[in-house]
């Protein structure tokens, strides 16, 4: 039987961005988690529209901690962008440094979210509004928590002998997911903190 051969021996063993499978995995998880956020917000709005007690239940939340949180989150997009770039260039020194920065930023964000929870004027068991506030903040908090944990592990990893090759691609992937954490916050922020003020 005649057999022709396509030679792939010269292809790379890893790459960046949407060329690799982990990127598509992360992307799919963003889709499904994004759907979860959208449905959560949908449920909140559904109750806000159908329930006549909503306006008086919906005590506006304090703007202090959330504003700090939003600010730090927005600023974090910059080192995150730089990580992506440094990872693609496989520059170990910058990736290490930036991962340290991102870990610190992440820990600060977790601290701010904890302050936020302790200052909330409603409890989850007070009324449906309270339940939704806790649910949505908690859902986003879990995302922050997982990505920060991931960043911490990655930081350690990059300081070991494993900090080469494909791990740069992992660092880039981690940065990609962080954008999702950042972007998914804005609709939540608008709905939870600003909508009840109008």
């Amino acid at each position: 039987m005649a057999r022709s051969v396509i030679d792939v021996s010269g292809l790379p063993t890893y790459a960046f961005g949407s060329r690799v499978t982990p990127w598509w995995g992360t992307f799919s998880f963003c889709l499904l988690e994004g759907t979860g956020f959208a449905l959560g917000i949908g449920g909140y709005l559904y109750l806000a529209v159908t329930n006549k007690d909503w306006p008086k239940d919906a005590v506006p939340l304090s703007l202090l901690w959330s504003a700090l949180f939003t600010l730090v989150l927005v600023i974090s997009a910059l080192p995150n962008f730089l990580i992506k770039r440094a990872a693609t260039r496989e520059s170990l020194r910058s990736v290490r440094l930036l991962l340290l920065i991102m870990s610190a930023v992440g820990l600060v964000l977790i601290g701010l979210r904890i302050m936020e929870f302790s200052a909330l004027p409603v409890r989850w068991s007070d009324n449906a509004y309270g339940s939704f506030v806790w649910l949505l903040l908690g859902l986003h908090g879990v995302h922050v928590l997982t990505d920060v944990a991931d960043t911490l592990v990655l930081t350690v990893l990059m300081f070991t002998r494993h900090g080469t090759g494909k791990r740069f691609s992992d660092a880039e992937d981690n940065a990609f997911y962080w954008y999702f954490v950042v972007l998914s916050w804005f609709p939540l922020y608008a709905v939870l903190y600003w909508l009840p003020r109008f």
């Binding site: 109750l47 989850w124 068991s125 007070d126 449906a128 339940s131 806790w134 649910l135």
Partner: peptide
């Protein structure tokens, strides 16, 4: 999301589906 809300309703007393506390079973 729904099954998590249901179990929270039953275990920690959230009010998503309770009409007396601003929730709605239709949700």
């Amino acid at each position: 999301l729904a099954s998590s809300m249901l179990i929270m309703e039953r275990l920690v007393g959230t009010q998503f589906f309770n009409p007396d506390a601003g929730g709605d079973p239709l949700l």
